[in-house]
Amino acid sequence: MKKTISVTVNGVTHQNEIEPRLLLVQYIRDVLNLTGTHVGCETSLCGACTVMVDGQAVKSCTMLAAQADGSTVTTIEGLAQGGELHPVQSGFWEHHGLQCGYCTPGMIMASAQILQRNPDPTDEEIRHGLEGNLCRCTGYQNIVQAVQCAAKKMKSKSVAR
């Protein structure tokens, strides 16, 4: 039995008729055509599919689109505001926190959550926060540096305000 859901993704409200077994990541990629969110392991281990649902970073391969009915979702496409990269995005840019880029959307979404909850994390806290995101290229060193850089950017921004 199909089900109608209403989900606000990156500020736009969508109404779609879906099969209950449609995963949130498939809804985002295949129905809404937002392909920035990646499908990696499909077993909630790698974190490539991380998006924010009602402000919480979740693995969208382990959530039904139906569970997101009525929710607000932010994907990697919705992170930059007014044509300006989110501090985590520019941190990854400046510190080259990627090689192939496959894990990057998930890494950035998870990092944004880490900094939202803890604006001044230690390297260890960043690594603990990113336990659910696998990168097979970088060895994580540049990713941690990118997140630290983002933390500094966000702090100086909030001081400026």
Binding site: S44, G47, T50, V53, Q56, A57, V58, K59, T62, M63, A110, Q113, I114, H128, G129, L130, E131, G132, N133
Partner: peptide, 12 residues
């Protein structure tokens, strides 16, 4: 809780 799964799993 803090040792369970990972941040995203703990969120949901």
């Amino acid at each position: 809780a803090t040792q369970l799964g990972d941040m995203q799993v703990r969120n949901k």
